[in-house]
Amino acid sequence: MTIEQEIRRLADKYADNLKARVDERVEEMEADDNSHYMIYKVLGITNEEGRLIDVYQNKGRFLYKYAGSFLEEAAKACFLEKFPESGSVKIPNTIGQRPKTFEIDCLVEGRDAIEIKWRDATTDGDHITKEHTRMQNIKDAGYKPIRVMFYYPNRTQAQRIQKTLETLYAGADGEYHYGDNAWEYVEQCTGIALKRILEAIATERTNGS
Rank of each mutant, 00 (worst) to 15 (best):
I3L: 06
E6M: 03
R8I: 06
D12S: 05
Y14A: 04
Y14E: 02
Y14I: 06
D16V: 10
N17K: 15
K19E: 05
R21H: 07
D23A: 14
R25D: 10
V26E: 07
Y37M: 13
I39Q: 08
I39P: 07
T46W: 15
I53V: 12
V55S: 10
G60K: 04
F62Q: 13
Y66H: 11
Y66D: 03
G68D: 05
S69L: 13
E73N: 08
A75G: 05
A77G: 06
C78E: 04
F79D: 03
E81G: 01
F83C: 05
F83E: 03
F83Q: 04
E85P: 09
G87W: 05
I91Q: 07
I91G: 09
I91S: 08
I91D: 05
P92D: 03
T94Y: 05
R98A: 15
R111V: 04
R111M: 09
A113R: 01
A113F: 04
W118K: 07
R119H: 14
T123Y: 06
D124S: 05
G125M: 08
Q136K: 14
I138E: 02
D140Q: 09
D140C: 02
G142T: 14
Y143N: 01
Y143V: 07
K144Q: 11
K144N: 08
Y151G: 02
T156Y: 11
Q157V: 08
Q162E: 10
K163P: 00
K163W: 15
L165W: 07
E166Y: 14
L168F: 11
Y169W: 08
G171H: 11
E175V: 06
G179D: 02
A182Y: 07
A182I: 05
E184K: 15
E187T: 02
T190M: 10
I192F: 10
A193P: 14
L194H: 01
L198C: 06
E204F: 01
T206W: 07
G208R: 04
